[in-house]
Design a protein around this nucleic acid. Structure first.
Lengths: 241, 241
DNA sequence: CGAGAGCTTGAGTTATGTCAATTCGTGTGG
DNA sequence: CCACACGAATTGACATAACTCAAGCTCTCG
């Protein structure tokens, strides 16, 4: 069975894509977005659990997530790994892969997903007529740096409770931007993946979810979350001691 | 007393700069590096403890560290902070500041330092004639993402001993690239700064340095480090349990 | 020479991890 | 359709790595 299906694209373009307000073109004027139409010539479907790319793979493209969800992770020599990010539709995966085309991480689909492929060479080509495209790419990369710094902040100076609260709050915000409910959603990641990402164990994650539920901050049933008290949740993020 | 002294530059250029092999032009052919000479029109001296830029400051420039050392940090609402990076000469500071010109972090000199200022608008200007400059900037940003992912790996899945060993090993490598000894150096950062960066307390850092010294891996006297057994140090990074 | 900041070391505490038992949920094959 | 099996999540009891608090040491600089 084929795990990674490439689809030639000619009927759908950035200018007509539903994700335009959150994806690569975000903030660009309409006449410029039209010039991006030549940018995406391929889309790829990836099955749950399958890699979009792997550590050290030679690749000269960015991937814009159209549907589904993807995690990125660093693999250690000893077989363990560290999840470095969870990506939702409209978000760009692969920005760490622009060092001589070698990816420093791997990207794996957390559910059946579809990505638009943006070749770096096409970016350079098209940015000759749309100079703001270079800004856009830099903006996205800058945002990715800022995002990972935020995670550093969580791992470096927050207690477990604060980390998980920050995680939920962040997920809520991003889903809301995507047009989903910010209070009712299904987490695509397992307790194990959340724990790995936040530098905690699966048991700690589970206990914290239970505690948040007991304290009336959230309701939780497996991966379904309902945020009952958003204010309390956000206060947990800053709560000292 | 003036804390931040701006120096107009017209006598010194990228093409003749000693840092060329480690700085922005790294890997670029000589005839292209010459075209970068117009890129740096200003240099800034910063005194120890003074900011190069602050969180939320409007700024449209990158800074290449010429001499000294700089730390970047995120400031939290409650007054605490998380150090996100230590920068050495030839390294680029400010790559997270390209989101609408707002810096998401602050950068502070750890000793009297000097930086070359590279205006973003000049990058766009000059990259018209030197297209590879855009690649270069993306490469640097990509590297910065990969770097912060490495720190995530340390904070998320290493024990204190591994973190400090990884920190020393990384510092050693970078100093060696700069042409300094990889085994004998002076750390510019305090125990407190190291602890903050690695998500550990000052006491834990101090105890670990003492233990490394007791085990014959390093010699340490205040901030002077001598790595006695580099192999053992690198083994500590991977050492489980 | 004294004061203060930075560092080290010890003793006791605690947040989080480890290990283990149980439950829940889902998919599979009889 | 049921029962069984397996992975995912929960919960409890206990262990421990790292933190906190406290005392003392060592530089540096005025």
């Amino acid at each position: 069975m084929q795990k990674r299906i490439s689809v030639e694209v000619d009927s759908q373009h950035c200018s007509t894509c539903m994700m335009g307000h959150v994806c690569l073109p975000v903030g660009m004027p309409a006449h410029e977005v039209q010039q991006l139409d030549a940018l995406v010539t391929e889309r790829i479907r990836i099955e749950k659990g399958q890699p979009l790319y792997r550590h050290n793979e030679q690749l000269n493209a960015l991937f814009s997530l159209r549907s589904g969800s993807i995690k990125t992770l660093l693999e250690e020599a000893n077989g363990s790994h560290q999840i470095t990010g969870f990506y939702l539709p409209g978000e760009i995966v692969g920005l760490d892969g622009m060092i001589e085309g070698k990816h420093s991480s791997s990207a794996i689909a957390m559910e059946d997903s579809e990505v638009c492929v943006v070749q770096i060479k096409d970016i350079d080509e098209i940015s000759r007529s749309v100079p703001s495209l270079q800004h856009q790419v830099r903006r996205l990369m800058s945002k990715e740096i800022a995002r990972s710094h935020q995670v550093l902040l969580a791992l470096g100076s927050m207690r477990s409770e604060q980390r998980l609260a920050a995680f939920l709050s962040n997920l809520s915000q991003r889903l809301s931007i995507l047009g989903y409910s910010s209070t009712d959603f299904v987490m695509r990641m397992s307790r194990e993946e959340i724990g790995n990402y936040l530098g905690l164990t699966i048991e700690t994650i589970s206990r914290l979810f239970s505690r948040f539920a007991r304290d009336g901050v959230i309701k939780i049933n497996q991966r379904e979350v309902k945020i009952i008290d958003m204010k309390a949740l956000n206060e947990l993020v800053d709560k000292p001691c």
